[in-house]
C-alpha cells in the first residue's frame, strides 16, 4: 500500500526536527502509542493500540529512524506485529521551510501488510492511515502550540 501526504506545521524545520527526534514527544503525539522504549539511538521498541473504524488491535515491534539529514528529512522504518496482522513500512519524510516560520512536511512510502489487515482491503486501510497521520500532525500542532505558550 502506498502512503503519501503532506502537512504544513506552524513551526520551523529546526524546532520540528528537534521534536521528532525526541522520544518523549513522539510517544505523546503518535496516535495509539502506549510505550516507546529506546533500544539504541534512533531505534525504539513501540507498543501501541490502534482503534480506527473496524481496525482495532495492539501492535508491538520496532520503530527506527535512518538516513537522517538534519532539518531536511529522514526515513522511518516501522515493523509492527499484531494479532490482526503485521505491518512493515518505510516512510521517507522530507522537511522544507515554508512561509513565515512554517514547515512543510512531505511523506511518502510503502507499507506491506499481512493477515486480516491485508484482507480487510486497502480502501479501509488507506483511510485508517490517513486518519492516523492527521491525528499525528494535529497532536504535533497542539504540542507546538503548547511549547509556544
Amino acid at each position: 500500500m502506498k502512503i503519501k501526504g503532506n502537512y504544513t506545521l506552524s513551526t520551523t524545520p529546526e524546532i520540528f526536527w528537534q521534536m521528532v527526534m525526541d522520544p518523549d514527544v513522539l510517544e505523546k503525539v503518535t496516535p495509539g502509542i502506549k510505550e516507546l522504549k529506546a533500544l539504541s539511538p534512533d531505534n525504539y521498541e513501540a507498543l501501541s493500540e490502534v482503534k480506527v473504524g473496524p481496525v482495532r488491535g495492539n501492535f508491538k515491534g520496532n520503530l527506527s529512524i535512518k538516513d537522517k539529514v538534519e532539518q531536511e528529512g529522514c526515513t522511518l522504518v516501522i515493523d509492527q506485529k499484531s494479532k490482526m496482522g503485521n505491518v512493515i513500512a518505510e516512510i521517507v519524510m522530507t522537511l522544507a521551510p515554508e512561509g513565515e516560520g512554517q514547515t512543510k512536511v512531505e511523506y511518502t512510502g510503502e507499507a506491506k501488510m499481512s493477515g486480516t489487515l491485508a484482507s480487510m482491503g486497502q480502501r479501509i486501510m488507506s483511510g485508517v492511515v490517513s486518519t492516523l497521520s492527521k491525528q499525528f500532525f494535529k497532536s504535533m500542532e497542539a504540542e507546538i502550540a503548547a511549547r509556544k505558550a
Binding site: 501488510m113 499481512s114 491485508a118 484482507s119 480487510m120 482491503g121
Partner: peptide, 12 residues
C-alpha cells in the same frame, strides 16, 4: 504478489 488475500470479506 506476497500471497495476501485482498478480497477476504463481503466488502471486497
Amino acid at each position: 504478489e506476497g500471497g495476501q488475500m485482498i478480497t477476504g470479506s463481503y466488502m471486497d
